[in-house]
Amino acid sequence: MEDFVNLTDFINTTSAKETKVPPYSERPETYVVPVVFAIIFIVGVVGNGTLVLIFARHRTMRNVPNTHIFSLALGDLLVILSCVPFTSTIYTFESWPYGELICKLSETTKDVSIGVSVFTLTALSADRFFAIVDPMRKLYSSIGGRGATRCTVFIAAAIWGVALLCALPAAISSHIREFKDGNKTLFKACYPFPTEFGMFYPRTVIMAKFLFYYAIPLSIVAVFYSLMARHLILSTRNMPGEMQGQVRQIRARKKVAKTVLTFVVVFAVCFFPHHLFMLWFYFHPRAQEYYNAFWHYFRIIGFCLSFINSCINPIALYCVSGTFRKHFDRYLFCCLKQGGVRRGRSSQRRTGTRKGWDSTSVPAQHSTLRRHDPAEITLTTFMNGTDKNAAI
């Protein structure tokens, strides 16, 4: 954990000469950060695990955008299971207690997960652009539903391959570094930068991560969404009445685009403080001199937010997608809903007996109405994958 080790090195050397550093037992982050990471672990496993289950059990959910969302969930699960339990304690122990293998594993999976997330969000934005902008619809219609999904699976696999390649430096160079004061070992830390490379190597890695894991992908996403917004504004002007079917399709695709945009905004907010701190700490010539309580807690907030991103996507998807919300409710709240249904049926029987109603007549009538509701038919069509590019 490069941010942890540099701060610890700073506290035990430069800063300790001028200020009294409180012991770990007196620092609030010693107790707050493990609690935050425990919440991240529980919410992340349940949320992303449910997303994977929904994708695996429901064939109608296996469309183009949902394939990318499935890939996002797998990447988040990877970092939550292999990294979060260990990094949650770096503010609790003075030295890294897990050995070099766990050090390499946690650093590598963290980089893989970040790469999968940001590259997948870029691919999702491109997919929304191709689905919405007129000239590229021909490409989708020529590929077809199943062909488009297979193409998306290939893209997702390529994204994982690129993310693994980008994580190779962490897998190779991460090691347990001993920080000493003369012959006395002060502490041991999981350190991703070989010391023999000097300061040039960590600065290069940090700048590369900022550019390829943050600035460049978000810039590409911004271009896609700017072009989409321009196209949608122009396409909705003076649209004739007979194009209402196309209007519904555009609205459905706009809804998916808004979902993707929500993921992008969440990612940008969660990783901005971390990147800002790392750039400041490594590139500002007087960073150690200016380091104070503000930067200390800013860094901790950025550290936590970067992992919160791994558990927040299912929450965001639950809030913005009605289709996924129904599946989440089915799997997560089925016991509560079944209890409510039993109580409702019991109450309905008692009410029906008193008033002389047939307890099945109202649901049957409701079902008949719904079969002839055009809005419901349209929604069912989208949910069943008729428009492979519009359904989430």
Rank of each mutant, 00 (worst) to 15 (best):
W295V: 04
T89P: 04
T195K: 04
R350F: 11
T108F: 03
V43S: 01
I90Y: 09
F129V: 06
F324A: 06
G47C: 04
M199C: 05
P314K: 08
R27H: 13
Y282I: 13
N292F: 03
D127G: 08
V45E: 01
K388A: 08
I90T: 12
K355W: 06
I250E: 01
V221T: 09
G302H: 02
T380P: 00
V247H: 06
G352D: 03
P273Y: 02
F212R: 05
A16Y: 12
F271Q: 11
D9R: 13
R237K: 15
E26V: 10
V118D: 07
L139H: 14
D111G: 05
R343Q: 13
Y282V: 11
T67F: 04
V35P: 00
C270H: 02
L77W: 06
Y24H: 07
R150D: 04
T386C: 06
E289D: 06
F307A: 04
N12H: 09
Y297V: 04
R59C: 11
T149P: 06
V116G: 01
P273M: 06
A375E: 10
F298N: 00
V35F: 12
S113R: 11
R203N: 03
R342S: 10
N238H: 14
I90F: 09
A163G: 01
T380E: 11
I54Q: 01
L78T: 12
Y331L: 14
V5S: 13
G241A: 15
L7I: 15
F328S: 07
A167K: 10
H284S: 10
N48H: 02
N309G: 03
T30H: 03
I308K: 03
K20T: 15
A364T: 09
Q244K: 15
A391H: 07
F10N: 12
I42M: 09
K254Q: 14
L218W: 03
V45C: 02
V362A: 14
C103H: 00
R27A: 09
R342W: 11
V5Q: 09
E242L: 13
K17A: 11
L276M: 15
S141D: 05
D134I: 09
V32E: 02
A293R: 14
E376G: 01
F119K: 09
S306R: 05
A293C: 12
L7K: 13
V21H: 11
D9A: 10
V153S: 10
S82M: 15
C311M: 10
I132L: 11
G115Y: 07
D134E: 13
F41C: 05
R128A: 08
G339R: 14
G145N: 10
P217D: 01
K104H: 01
T204W: 07
S306W: 10
Y331I: 13
A390Y: 04
K388L: 15
R57G: 08
F324Q: 11
E2Y: 14
P314M: 03
E26A: 12
T195E: 10
L234S: 10
Q288H: 11
Q365T: 08
F324G: 00
M199E: 12
C151E: 10
N389T: 13
P135I: 07
I143N: 07
V35N: 04
Y291W: 07
G99T: 03
F263I: 10
M61R: 14
A287L: 08
E94S: 13
A316M: 08
A222G: 05
W295A: 07
R230S: 02
A157H: 03
H275A: 05
D127C: 12
V5P: 01
P169H: 03
D76R: 15
Y91R: 15
I132Q: 00
M243I: 06
V247M: 13
